[in-house]
């Protein structure tokens, strides 16, 4: 059985605080964001699941020079998070002083939420941009 999750469904769920992904019936690995096959073994035998939304920051950067369409948002901090279930996702940390914290931010525990931003000319979703936002658990 192959479950398919569209990007609209994925982002709709994220706005409701649910992180959707796929679990492989063959190898047991999780895939998030969802795609056509299991990210680990390539099987199409994948089932829709809700992930915990918890993970740890693996790396991050604060952007000061933005592309057109994102200029009103600078400075913003993009981070990668390794989810409890294994996949990595890209999102933002809403934090004033990420650079002052520096490398110590890596390894911090977070939970993910969705936040709606205005879309821009080239973004695939013409209605909105849903950004995964990572909240520090300790804060």
């Amino acid at each position: 059985m192959t479950d398919v999750i569209s990007f609209k469904e994925y982002f709709d769920a994220l706005l409701e605080g649910k992180l959707l992904g796929l679990k492989c019936s063959d190898c047991g690995a999780y895939t998030c964001p969802p795609k056509a096959v299991c990210d680990s073994c390539g099987s199409r035998n994948v089932k829709r699941v809700e992930l915990s939304g918890r993970g740890r920051i693996t790396t991050f950067t604060t952007t000061y020079v933005a592309p057109v369409g994102y200029d009103k948002e600078v400075p913003y901090t993009v981070a990668m998070v390794e989810l409890e279930e294994g996949p990595w996702i890209v999102g933002r940390i809403e934090i004033e002083n990420a650079d002052e914290i520096g490398q110590d931010l890596i390894g911090e525990e977070v939970v993910v939420e969705g936040k709606e931003y205005p879309t821009e000319m080239f973004y695939p979703d013409k209605k909105r941009r849903v950004v995964p936002v990572f909240k520090l658990v300790k804060a």
């Binding site: 964001p33 933005a66 592309p67 993009v78 890209v90 999102g91 973004y123 979703d125 849903v130 995964p132």
Partner: peptide, 9 residues
């Protein structure tokens, strides 16, 4: 989609 939404450059 998934990298651009966060404004990754």
């Amino acid at each position: 989609l998934h990298e651009m939404t966060a404004g990754l450059t």
